[in-house]
Design a protein around this nucleic acid. Structure first.
Lengths: 134, 134
DNA sequence: AATAATTTTCAGAATTTTTTGAAAATTCAA
DNA sequence: TTGAATTTTCAAAAAATTCTGAAAATTATT
């Protein structure tokens, strides 16, 4: 297998599986592409490589940045913005866990808390409280 | 807050957040409903409670069973099938992790393995191998 | 200040996922 | 058996999500 083919397969697999984790396909394909690239890439290069629109690239790059998975890199003398991925796979994993907790688990726990404090105490509430308190 | 209201809120919150984790809303609402119910419920009761179709209930019940999160319970003298959820929240968590690993992580690792073994060795492959090997 | 390059936005289009509901299949009781 | 009760399937409809592309906004250059 050639390097190009291997990379394409990796990007494709990564993108397909991600949807099952609630992450959209393009976002993870861009992430994979940057993970595998040893140089920083700009929007046009990503569009070209993945055959997707500028708007799509732009939105997903910003998402990836907000997840702390990629970073802008300004290249002196270049007008365009370039992007690089965090390459340390363990940092990546930790960062994803941290963000998920912040974005999704915390709101759930808050909602549970609201329920707990708002709930009248009674014999009946036991099973609910047991679950909500864990 | 009344118990009924608290339960409804819990089910709703659970269902909303789940989509961000790649689990569909109905599946997690049914799960939440069964988690909170101290008696086993049948399809009609779930349809009624969540206002969804029979087909939808049926499919998602089977999904939940295949995830090991709920179980069929046959009630003597009853024709209908009843369902109960695993109530121990830690067992639930462990079960979800285990299933996700089996269903999603394993295929990813397999795909990576294919790439690794199929890849010609060369100077260029280093960065890819580094990621794939971790 | 004018203009050229680049990025961002977002309404509508395309795609994907979920849901419905009626028909088919299955199960059980008489 | 027969048929009534129940469960399962699945094509089509509905809903949700993602993507496009052109216009608007921003940023840098002359």
């Amino acid at each position: 297998m050639e390097l190009k083919e291997a990379k394409d397969r990796f990007i494709h697999t990564w993108g397909t599986l991600s949807t099952q984790w609630g992450i959209n396909r393009t976002m993870s394909q861009i992430h994979a592409l940057l993970l595998l690239s040893d140089k920083a890439l700009n929007a046009d290069e990503i569009m070209e490589e993945l055959q997707i629109s500028r708007g799509n690239v732009n939105m997903n790059l910003r998402d990836l940045i907000s997840w702390g998975l990629i970073f802008k890199q300004l290249i002196p003398g270049e007008r365009k913005e370039y992007f690089v991925a965090e390459k340390d796979i363990w940092k990546v994993t930790r960062q994803i866990s941290r963000e998920r907790r912040r974005r999704e688990l915390t709101p759930l726990l808050d909602a549970m808390n609201d329920i707990r404090t708002g709930l009248k105490d009674s014999e009946e509430t036991r099973s609910l409280l047991k679950i909500v308190n864990d």
